[in-house]
Design a protein around this nucleic acid. Structure first.
Lengths: 148, 148
DNA sequence: TTTCGGTTGATAAAAATTATCGCGTTAGAT
DNA sequence: ATCTAACGCGATAATTTTTATCAACCGAAA
């Protein structure tokens, strides 16, 4: 994620906060910037460590509360994982995920073949959107054998 | 999940344990039976409560350890969720999930249109399998308005 | 300036998961 | 049959992750 693109995302975030009447505090801006600038789909802890570099007074509780706020604003989403900690994504465009079965890393993925997945469901379920996860071996884990 | 079908699954589980040299202890059998007999994709806590009905001495730690064993044996899988607790599934057939955006319930789902999703990925990622999640409103939540 | 509502940071508490360890049971060797 | 070693179980402690609480702070409005 290039930093200029991140900057544009931050700007849009600040604008959205103004529109919604949600204060764009320095803490929220820094947390959003860290999330938007990461491709690692970071955990709250990871964001905490990142933001503290430029804002040492940051509290971990603020990170959790702000992430809830970002999700409520619709500028971030929580990713479903099998891991121990929550992970977030600021990429709100239609996209899917590659999940490494070895190291559990998650990366974004777009493919034309996945763009038009039919939105089907049983009759008693009202579908809204589909998410696809491709599980397999990431580049790193393919190269290096399991550490066991 | 009909109980006779659950019984067949338990039988296969016991056979598999014998083949693998993994002791099919009463605890493991009861935990597997509870998982195989549930359609709720239960959490460890839910399985603990269920199994204690017939085996009051069950320990929660045993549930956690056994779930790891079941996954290692390939007779159960952990489901990726955005929730607070882990959730498991004993249905090992190719299937997908309906996730309620309101109550976060998860139900199994099979559709011909999803049977042949192409196993595609970027060049540096080795895909193994795909999982699809259809997000939307379940029957109950469609009927009852949000509690807020 | 004062007030008020919302936010932050510190901390406690809760919830979920994992680690530890003694005990009992079982399998295999003798 | 007895002994022994290995393994699983249950109890519990410890760790990790997340949420709740609350006083202090900040900015906007009066």
């Amino acid at each position: 994620m290039s930093s200029q693109f991140t900057g544009a995302m931050v700007q849009r975030f600040v604008d959205l906060c103004r529109d919604r009447g949600t204060p764009a505090t320095p803490q929220r801006i820094e947390i959003y910037r860290a999330l938007a600038g990461s491709e690692a789909h970071p955990t709250p802890e990871m964001l905490y460590d990142q933001v503290r570099l430029s804002m040492p007074s940051m509290s971990l509780a603020t990170v959790y509360k702000t992430l809830d706020t970002l999700v409520a604003l619709g500028v971030a989403s929580e990713i479903a994982t099998t891991g121990d900690a929550k992970r977030y994504d600021a990429n709100m465009e239609q996209h899917h995920h590659l999940v490494c079965t070895q190291c559990h890393s998650i990366s974004d993925f777009r493919a034309p073949a996945f763009e038009r997945i039919p939105l089907i469901a049983p009759e008693d379920f009202t579908p809204e959107f589909v998410s696809i996860r491709v599980h397999g071996l990431c580049k790193k884990c393919k190269a290096s054998p399991p550490h066991s």
